[in-house]
Amino acid sequence: MDWFRQGIASALLDFVIKQEPSVREIIATTGSRNAPAVRFYERHGFYATERIQTREEIELTTFVKEI
Rank of each mutant, 00 (worst) to 15 (best):
M1A: 12
D2N: 15
D2Q: 14
D2G: 15
W3D: 09
R5Y: 10
Q6N: 06
Q6P: 01
G7T: 05
I8C: 10
I8P: 02
A9E: 07
A9T: 06
A9H: 10
S10R: 11
A11D: 14
L12A: 12
L13W: 11
D14P: 00
D14V: 06
V16K: 02
I17R: 01
I17Q: 02
I17W: 03
K18S: 11
K18H: 09
Q19H: 05
Q19C: 09
Q19V: 03
E20G: 06
E20K: 08
E20N: 12
P21R: 01
V23D: 01
V23G: 02
V23K: 11
V23R: 09
R24T: 08
R24G: 04
R24P: 00
E25C: 11
E25P: 00
E25M: 14
I26D: 00
I26G: 00
I26T: 04
I27A: 04
I27F: 07
A28C: 04
A28L: 03
T29M: 06
T29N: 02
G31D: 07
S32C: 05
S32K: 08
S32V: 02
R33M: 08
N34V: 05
P36T: 15
A37M: 07
A37G: 09
R39Q: 14
R39N: 12
F40C: 01
Y41V: 01
Y41M: 01
E42I: 13
R43I: 12
H44E: 02
Y47R: 13
Y47C: 03
A48Y: 14
A48L: 05
T49K: 09
T49C: 07
E50I: 00
R51P: 03
I52Q: 04
I52K: 02
I52V: 10
Q53H: 14
Q53S: 06
Q53Y: 13
T54W: 11
T54I: 10
T54Y: 08
R55K: 13
E56D: 15
E56C: 03
E56F: 12
I58A: 09
E59V: 04
E59P: 07
L60A: 03
L60E: 02
T61A: 02
T61Y: 13
F63E: 00
F63Y: 13
V64A: 07
K65F: 14
E66M: 08
E66A: 09
I67K: 05
I67N: 04
